[in-house]
Amino acid sequence: MDTEITLRVDGAAHPLTVDTRTTLLDALRERLRNTSPKKGCDHGQCGACTVLLDGRRVNSCLVLAVTVGDAEVTTSDGLAAGGQPHPLHRSFVERDAFQCGYCTPGQVCSAAGVIEEARAGWPSAVTADLTAADAELTDAEIRERMSGNLCRCAAYANIVPAVADVAQASGVRR
């Protein structure tokens, strides 16, 4: 079943005819040829397809394109406003927070989401005091919050400081 939609991606609007079956991930990769979100499992199990949907991180492989409506989709590439690398882009390179790079744009989007979630005071599974007023992004917190993004190259120990650097610079408690 073909349906007309308009996807707003990284600041640009794309009118598109998609199959109702088309996921947001496939619409981005196969239709718009946006290579930033990756496919590592197609079932919500790896996080490589993570994008920000109206600022919240989601697995684009499980979102049907027809359900996106006028929500703003932001990929890791789109975080580079005006071609300028995002602070997370710099910290990931500086900390060598990846090897093959395939999980990486998803990690970057997820990290952006983690920082916003912490800023909003959201707790995590390792937060000792659920009632605390604000969230503290300790290393253990970053590890837990970033665990929806598998990295088979296991750059985890470098991802943690890469996220921490940017969290700290943006005023999140550590």
Binding site: P37, S76, V93, P105
Partner: peptide
């Protein structure tokens, strides 16, 4: 030394197999 392919990889613009035109 930082990876020379790093900036493209973190943004997702380095082309993997299915990403060539």
């Amino acid at each position: 030394i930082d990876r020379i392919d790093g900036p493209a990889k973190v943004r997702g613009t380095a082309p993997y197999a299915y990403e060539h035109d």
